[in-house]
Simulated scan of single mutants.
Amino acid sequence: MPETTLKVLIADDEPLAAERLQLLLARIGGIDLVGTASDGEAAVRMAAALAPDLLLLDIAMPGLDGIEVARELAGTRPSPVVIFVTAFDQFAVAAFDVAAVDYLMKPIEPGRLQEAIERARTHLRHLDSGCADAAPPGQSDFLEEFWASDRSGLVRIASADVDRISAERDYMRLHVGARSWLIHHSMASLEEQLDPALFVRLHRSAIVRRDFIGGFTRNPSGRWVALLNDQTEQPVGRLYSDRVKAIAGR
């Protein structure tokens, strides 16, 4: 089946940045660039007139900024999928509050843009399949994903893919296989937000995915230690020892 063509609108007040995006998009198949807006108000007008599938949206623009543009367009039907393209990482939380599907840092890497475009296609296919009324990521009762800083922007990490979480001062480290990322959260807030059917807190500085626990043993002091599937061990805090019995069904 041929790939569906995406109608794309660029909104960026920097001509060189907009031109670079156009050149990168020209290398990606199935893209129809329908226009380029140089400020927030123009982006809203052009989106209403052109009905793009995807909006590549800068954040720092004169007049309406990118976050305001996304909020205004969210009330339209159909509303375009939004990928933010910016030189600043401090807007990430606000960006995903308006349900952006990705957040790219300038200068844009071609492979990272391709990945974001594919994510947008997947999201649009999900909507077309009749799941438009389903809760978007991050809107369920429990935290379903994290966004962590990467060298080319932010990376989306599904909660269900996280093996364990360890505390490092004011940050939490997400461990996914051999890789890890730091996020700014507290352990207490993560314990509240993560699905208790999937995760269990075993220590004041550690949360572990339940199916990542291979067993338990006791150390020479009689304290429980969780044996994890990556062959590492996680001591169980005294305050959390009752959870060992709960996991074991005792």
Rank of each mutant, 00 (worst) to 15 (best):
L104F: 13
F88C: 11
Q90C: 02
G66C: 07
M46L: 14
L50P: 03
S79D: 07
A87H: 09
M46D: 12
A74T: 06
A48P: 00
D53N: 07
D97I: 07
Q90P: 04
Y103W: 11
A60C: 06
A42T: 13
P52W: 00
G75K: 12
Q90M: 11
A48W: 04
V81F: 04
A47S: 15
Y103R: 08
I67T: 12
R77S: 15
D65M: 04
A49C: 03
D97C: 07
A43L: 01
D53K: 00
L50I: 04
R71S: 10
L57N: 06
R45M: 11
A95F: 08
G75F: 02
L64F: 08
L56W: 13
G66Q: 05
M46S: 10
D58W: 07
F88G: 12
V101P: 10
A42K: 14
A47F: 08
F96W: 14
P62C: 03
M105P: 05
A43P: 01
A47N: 08
M105S: 14
I83A: 09
E41P: 02
A42Y: 00
F91Q: 06
A70G: 04
S79N: 11
A94G: 13
A60T: 10
A60W: 01
L55E: 00
F84H: 11
A100I: 05
A70F: 02
P78K: 09
L104D: 00
A95L: 07
A48S: 12
A99P: 00
A48L: 12
D65E: 06
A49P: 00
D65Y: 01
V69C: 00
L64D: 10
P52L: 03
L73I: 12
F84I: 10
V44M: 01
L104S: 02
A100R: 01
P52H: 01
A47W: 09
A100V: 06
E41Y: 06
Y103S: 05
F91K: 02
Q90R: 15
A51M: 05
I83R: 03
V82G: 07
L104K: 04
A95P: 05
V69P: 01
D65V: 06
A100K: 01
M46E: 11
V44C: 03
E68P: 06
Q90T: 10
E72D: 07
M61I: 11
Y103D: 04
A48R: 14
A95Q: 05
V101T: 14
T76Q: 12
D102A: 11
G66S: 08
A43E: 00
L64K: 11
S79P: 05
A60Y: 02
F96L: 09
